[in-house]
């Protein structure tokens, strides 16, 4: 017995280190797993309140720029109101959003990162404000991510600049669709996969959300093709996409929820169960 106690006392530093290291790894692992219910990070009440306070101090620094962005969005929306015939049906950026099917909330970003490989944003709205998991998040310019964690007053968003993000995107003019991923480093370059070489596409083409996923309604702007190469080894394009949103400066965002998402998912579920 004495020997066991001696062993613990002699190795107490290593044992303490090993214990703390394992705790840290465990936290890393659970932060990487999607849809974690118990999460302790920037959405926690204390750190969330701290970040909120910090955002309220630094918000003044780029008011001009943020106002400009919101004014531009207003201009686009007004143009759509005044020219309904021009914008409807033509398949431009402003395809009709079915507002009875989509619930919108506005929120402010209180923490934002874009220099890591797994980037996330924290919003100042949470469960009590009606934010739920799997809501899509938009900036005035386009899609920026998906809600992955919610606490009472804050929500965490997995940015499109996250190596784990996979967003289904389609070309606005043709109906070809592929998966949009990010491989790290450059906040202005994402990769669009699975577009076959027979697709008639060109640099400058606009990418929008595809209604197939139940997260985003169809037709929300995502980004523009900036580079296009053809590999000789396979039948797919290598496409680089620049998101419309400047991910390094986001303040005001909207969360969207498709009210028909539950119905679609339930239907698909019953279909799968039925075939079993």
């Amino acid at each position: 017995m004495q020997q066991i106690i001696d062993f613990f006392i002699r190795n107490k530093n290593f044992l303490l280190f090993a214990l703390l290291f394992v705790i840290a790894l465990q936290r890393t692992r659970s932060a990487h797993s999607f849809h974690q219910t118990r999460y302790f990070g920037s959405t926690h009440a204390i750190s969330g309140a701290f970040l909120n306070w910090k955002a309220s101090l630094t918000n003044y620094l780029d008011l001009m720029e943020q106002n400009e962005l919101l004014a531009q969005e207003n201009k686009t929306l007004r143009a759509q109101l005044l020219n309904p015939i021009n914008t409807l049906g033509k398949g431009s950026v402003s395809e009709p959003y079915h507002f009875d099917h989509v619930a919108l909330h506005s929120a402010k970003v209180i923490n934002n990162n874009f220099h890591k490989t797994k980037n996330q944003l924290t919003l100042d709205q949470g469960r009590l404000d009606g934010i739920t998991l799997d809501m899509g998040v938009l900036s005035p310019q386009g899609v920026i991510g998906i809600v992955t964690h919610v606490s009472d007053h804050y929500a965490l968003v997995q940015s499109i600049l996250n190596t784990q993000s996979r967003i289904v995107a389609k070309f606005q003019k043709s109906q070809h669709f592929g998966t949009l991923v990010w491989e790290g480093r450059d906040p202005g370059a994402m990769q669009l996969l699975e577009i076959p070489k027979i697709a008639p596409i060109a640099i400058g083409d606009t990418l929008v959300t595809d209604g197939r996923s139940t997260i985003f309604p169809e037709g929300l702007p995502i980004g523009r093709v900036v580079a296009l190469t053809q590999e000789t080894s396979n039948d797919y394009y290598t496409i680089t996409v620049a998101p419309f949103t400047d991910m390094t400066s986001i303040k005001h965002v909207y969360t969207v929820q498709r009210n028909d998402a539950l119905e679609i998912l339930t239907l698909e579920q019953t279909g799968e169960d039925g075939t079993n």
């Binding site: 280190f17 703390l20 290291f21 705790i23 840290a24 790894l25 465990q26 936290r27 890393t28 692992r29 659970s30 932060a31 990487h32 302790f40 990070g41 920037s42 926690h44 750190s47 701290f50 970040l51 923490n111 990162n113 890591k116 797994k118 996330q120 924290t122 965490l156």
Partner: peptide, 14 residues
């Protein structure tokens, strides 16, 4: 806690 990185800083620092 403030950079939403799970436990990577804690692991590297310890």
């Amino acid at each position: 806690l403030f950079s939403d990185t799970g436990g990577v800083h804690a692991a590297a620092a310890v």
